[in-house]
Design a protein around this nucleic acid. Structure first.
Lengths: 167, 167
DNA sequence: TAGAGCATGTAATATGTTACATGATTCC
DNA sequence: GGAATCATGTAACATATTACATGCTCTA
């Protein structure tokens, strides 16, 4: 449902067609959930069936025609309900990366340390993107601020585990 | 795949039947991912088809017969591969709770603050369980230590957001 | 004797991903 | 002329949830 919430949010700030939405979703590390292209098209179609959005066809020059979506009144109502719901609820996050850590005793410490070093490298690469966002932007966008802190804590954590394995 | 990894891990520490596994998974806040009952039965059946586990039927007194699963050699190999994979990879987590925060401008500050206060209460309740786990256990189980820190940071974060909305 | 616990699962539904299909236009 | 971009989607598959079905035993 957060996916629909996010899409409705985007469409309320400005009307958009599917392709544009997907561009935003793919090229931004600042979005806290993942929505693939096929999924986004599907969700828009579903929300249209539900009556939350409508589309009109548009065409710029000779480009392929676009479906420009906008939120209906019923969609705006649904949006507010989803938003309230999202703000009060506390979905337990899934820490898939921890499963392996708990089972690491099945491998020699040295191997675990080597593998985690690779993870750490990956993490640092992801962090670079986030860290490049100017501080004033970060401080006005809760999710960016959050993710910045999260990744930075994550890096510290993995580094600490590696240290323990080596010491 | 982390679900299969976790199940293989459990089954390697000791043989188990589905019901027992589900008990462990349900009554423990110390497990970093969620596996529902139906899903666990399904995964065990799937892994049996794959040749990773086998079962033998057992019966204690007149209780319903159990399928006691154990990991095959091929399963042990698969387990180690899944484990290595899990340790090097960095799956981007989904922060579903952040979607709403980014859209909070659609509601009056006071309402957002009230809603977040409810979330905070929920969070604190979840934290109590984790905090009750003795420190020595926590320090020897990475995922428990991690989740303890995570929830504690999460509480701080929501509290901070509420303060900002009020100030 | 009624309800909780033990033990297994299926069916229907929901959700999401991957890869593929289509066809025009623009850039090199 | 060929690749990248614009723009839409479908089909097949994978994964997971909810609710339901079954039937025995133990306890109050």
């Amino acid at each position: 449902m957060e996916k629909k919430l996010l899409l409705l949010g985007l469409l309320q700030s400005r009307e958009m067609h599917g392709y544009k939405i997907n561009e935003l979703l793919e090229h931004s590390c600042a979005i806290p959930i993942k929505i693939t292209k096929a999924n986004a098209y599907k969700l828009l179609a579903d929300m249209e069936k539900q009556g939350w959005v409508t589309h009109k066809n548009e065409r710029e020059g000779n480009r392929p025609p676009r479906r420009v979506y906008s939120v209906t009144n019923s969609g705006k109502e649904a949006f507010l309900n989803l938003l309230r719901e999202n703000l009060i609820s506390m979905p337990k996050p899934e820490f898939t990366g921890l499963v392996g850590l708990d089972l690491a005793s099945f491998l020699p410490h040295s191997e675990t340390a080597t593998l985690l070093a690779k993870k750490l490298k990956l993490l640092k690469e992801l962090f670079v993107e986030l860290d490049a966002i100017p501080e004033n932007v970060r401080n006005t966008h809760p999710s960016i601020e959050y993710m910045h802190r999260y990744y930075s804590a994550e890096i510290e954590w993995i580094a600490e585990i590696i240290r323990r394995l080596q010491g």
